[in-house]
Amino acid sequence: MAAPKITFYTNHGCPWAHRAQITIKELGLPYEEVIIDLTKPREPWYLKEVNPRGLVPTIKYNGEIIAESAVVSQFLADAHPSHLIPPTGTPENALKRARIQFFADTWATKAGSYWFRIALLDTEEEKEALVKEFVGVVAKEIEPLLSDAAPFFGGSDKLTLAEVLTAPFVLRIYEFSKADVLPKSLPEGLNALPNFAKWAAEVVKHESVLYVWDAEKIVPATKAKFASLKADAKAKA
């Protein structure tokens, strides 16, 4: 099978684009990278020819445009069968796929937004209250789903699509807490959950998760972004 022609429109600071970046790295696919500056309005060519929503990631795959991080990641994993997710065709594989999708959906719908909300709060009291709530949600919803991680989801010794879709956010939780973007009590609380702590420790040091991560650039840019969002919120209040 000939290698596909992939143009990857991305931004290394975006956690959503990071999902697709991990997928491409794990699959070993060649690609042309186009960095999209998210700090200014999108260029007309991008809105017209690539993604009218102006978002990343988007890929052009053999001439076809595919957008949205979960869709891009799922498409690439299905188009290039690997350890990320089993192929369709048997009840056993269908069950494994369903469990991966349920894990990713649980993170996104139950836990995924907490770190962002915590970072936008002003007082330590407010932050600590939401940290406690977040850790409680992870304990209830995520911790049981990682009971057989070895070290990755579902007993896999390699990354799965479950990690692809959650790793960018888990990494940021741990890295941002080191720089006081998030309270240090957040990783401390998560590390008290044995299944999550063991799994997360492997996720955040994986080569495919880290290969476009540049803390020296991403952390200050994120701090500035949150400061701007807070200032805008106060101005509108």
Results as ranks from 00 to 15, higher is better:
Ala2Lys: 10
His12Thr: 12
Pro15Cys: 04
Ala17Thr: 08
Ile22Leu: 06
Thr23Cys: 10
Thr23Ile: 06
Gly28Val: 11
Leu29Pro: 08
Leu29His: 12
Pro30Asn: 13
Pro30Tyr: 13
Glu32Val: 15
Lys40Tyr: 03
Lys40Glu: 11
Arg42Tyr: 06
Arg42Met: 07
Leu47Lys: 10
Leu47Arg: 10
Val50Asp: 11
Val50Cys: 09
Pro52Thr: 03
Pro52Met: 01
Ile59Ala: 03
Glu64Gly: 07
Ala67Glu: 08
Ser69Trp: 13
Val71Gly: 02
Gln74Thr: 15
Phe75Arg: 04
Asp78Val: 15
Ala79Asp: 07
Ala79Lys: 13
His80Gln: 12
Ser82Thr: 12
Leu84Arg: 02
Pro86Tyr: 02
Thr88Pro: 05
Asn93Ala: 11
Ala94Gln: 11
Ala94Tyr: 07
Leu95Val: 12
Lys96Gly: 00
Arg97Ile: 02
Ile100Glu: 09
Ile100Lys: 09
Phe102Tyr: 15
Phe103Pro: 02
Phe103Trp: 05
Ala104Val: 01
Asp105Ile: 09
Trp107Glu: 01
Ala111Thr: 11
Ala111Gly: 04
Gly112Leu: 01
Gly112His: 00
Ser113Ile: 00
Ser113His: 08
Trp115Asn: 05
Phe116Thr: 04
Leu120Gln: 15
Leu121Cys: 13
Glu124Gly: 15
Glu128Thr: 01
Ala129Leu: 05
Phe134Ser: 02
Val135His: 07
Val135Ile: 04
Gly136Tyr: 02
Gly136Ser: 00
Val137Ala: 03
Val137Met: 03
Ile142Glu: 09
Ala150Met: 04
Phe152Gln: 12
Ser156Tyr: 13
Thr160Gly: 08
Leu165Thr: 02
Thr166Leu: 00
Pro168Ala: 00
Phe169Lys: 13
Val170Ile: 05
Tyr174Val: 04
Glu175Met: 08
Glu175Cys: 05
Lys178Leu: 08
Lys178Ser: 03
Lys178Phe: 13
Lys178Trp: 04
Lys178His: 13
Asp180Gln: 09
Asp180Ala: 10
Lys184Tyr: 00
Lys184Gln: 09
Lys184Cys: 00
Gly189Cys: 03
Leu190Arg: 00
Asn195Met: 06
Trp199Asp: 15
His206Arg: 10
Tyr211Leu: 14
Lys217Asn: 11
Ile218Glu: 07
Pro220Val: 14
Thr222Gly: 02
Lys223Val: 14
Ala224Phe: 08
Ala224Gly: 10
Lys225Ser: 06
Phe226Lys: 02
Phe226Val: 15
Ala227Pro: 10
Ser228Leu: 14
Asp232Glu: 15
Lys234Tyr: 09
Ala235Ser: 06
